[in-house]
Amino acid sequence: MAAEVLDARRAAPAARAALDPLLSLRGIVFRPAERTILDHVDFDWDGAGVCALVGPNGAGKTVLLRTIHGLLAPHEGDVRFEGRSRPAGDLAFAGQALVFQHSSMFRGSALDNLLVVPGIGASGRERRECALAMLERVGLRELAQAPALKLSGGERQRLAIARAWLMRPRLLLLDEPTASLDPSATEQVEELIREIHDDGCRVLLTSHNLGQVSRLADEVVFLHRGRVLERTPVSAFFANPRTREARQFLQGALPWHLSSPP
């Protein structure tokens, strides 16, 4: 029963125009307090493969991810997801889920933290079954009753991914999904991301971990000072970056950038 509910939630809206790309960004400018974070970003993505946003600190990756999700309203430009504009009010786009770099957990058990996801079942029992099945999928079934705030970093991140996955998104956004995790926890999270992608969900992530980008991503979007400088298949990005900034970034020589260009 729970699986049927999840399958029904997975179905893309029938009204989605066939020609619309999954994601379309046009002239996105985000400029709070006269500081330009995103500078006329154009980006169409049909959702094939896993896409990684990379760039130095302050390049605008996290802001771009939040803008794509609908949490931030751009000062200029238009974001479209499956042909739809940013929703009215303060809600994020339907059909997307975002795993934050520092996911907030509610004061309750791991199971409680999944039960906050709306629309996962008609009855309390169904909701619980659905949430427990998801905990099983991410390897946290035995920690269902453990306090979420006492889980380890890796367990918390898997719980955050479970919460996002439970929404049955058609696009999953991940902001630095393995920042500050040890290699073992990183491997578990990467395995989960592959599984989610294999399950038919499109994945767009940011990462500073270039090894991870090479392992997970099919395509790389290189951001620098709020601009998309390069968009290329992952192998080409590492083998032959086209821009000087990307070459410097890969060599670790690109200075951290925190202010807008003159």
């Binding site: 939040r66 949490l71 889920a97 509610f106 996801v117 709306p118």
Partner: peptide, 22 residues
């Protein structure tokens, strides 16, 4: 938790309930 609740697309009444519980 605001961004998480917005990301989860919880309506106002559910946000209030979740936050009071938290």
């Amino acid at each position: 938790h605001g961004e998480t609740l917005r990301s989860l697309r919880l309506p106002l009444a559910s946000r209030v309930r979740v936050l009071l519980w938290d």
